[in-house]
């Protein structure tokens, strides 16, 4: 048994030493989700907007693929083979004057949008934007206004996603940020709001 574990340890070291190590800077998904949640709550909780829906407690994250006991050994080996300078803390910067401005703009629009989100005239689309769903219950003369609010809100959201990516010097993250927001808008939406599921069908929370 001991011989087996020694062989395994040698194998790990040899593997680590001979492997061509490539360092990827991964999208900080958890940080993005946390940042998105803060911003979304801030917007949805603007005065006049309804109280947010309390989501169920998120399940504890679990590691996959590699058993937890093996992880320290691999990390120990890699720490000594790979320069630590390349390691990057998974963090996301969500503070910049432009981001703050656009958040203020979205917060001030929130009370105007809320009645139409409540009555299902508009809903949270699966792509991180808002979309007109059913204007039937909106008086005819107000429908252009709803479309204008939707266009302006989407222009702000586009700016928000782009500016967060830019604040992190990673313009290529824009789509991932938008996808994260798309999920969080729906999770944080109050009960009764409409949203699009993954297939594009409208559902009510």
């Amino acid at each position: 048994m001991r011989a087996l574990s020694r062989m395994f340890a040698v194998l790990v070291v040899v593997l680590a030493a001979s492997a061509c190590v490539t360092i990827h800077i991964y999208f900080p998904a958890a940080a993005a989700e946390e940042a998105a949640r803060t911003i979304v709550r801030d917007v949805l909780e603007a005065p006049g907007a309804p109280p947010p829906f309390e989501p169920d407690a998120a399940p504890e994250p679990t590691s996959r693929g590699i058993t937890p006991l093996l992880m320290p050994a691999v990390a120990w080996g890699l720490d000594r083979l790979v320069a630590p300078a390349s390691a990057q803390a998974p963090d996301l910067r969500v503070e910049s004057p432009a981001i703050n401005r656009v958040r203020t703009s979205m917060r001030s629009r929130s009370p105007e949008l809320a009645p139409y989100l409540r009555n299902g005239a508009i809903g949270f689309a699966r792509d991180g934007f808002v979309e007109v769903r059913d204007l039937s219950d909106v008086p005819l003369g107000e429908r252009s206004r709803v479309q204008r609010l939707v266009s302006e809100e989407n222009a702000d959201r586009r700016t928000l996603y782009r500016e967060i990516a830019r604040a992190n010097d990673r313009p290529d993250w824009e789509d991932r940020i938008r996808e994260t927001f798309a999920r969080v808008w729906v999770e944080e939406a109050p009960a009764g709001y409409w949203y699009q599921d993954a297939d594009g069908n409208w559902r009510q929370k």
Partner: peptide, 8 residues
């Protein structure tokens, strides 16, 4: 159905 084309 979606109220996008309507008249009164």
């Amino acid at each position: 159905p979606a109220g996008l084309h309507a008249a009164e």
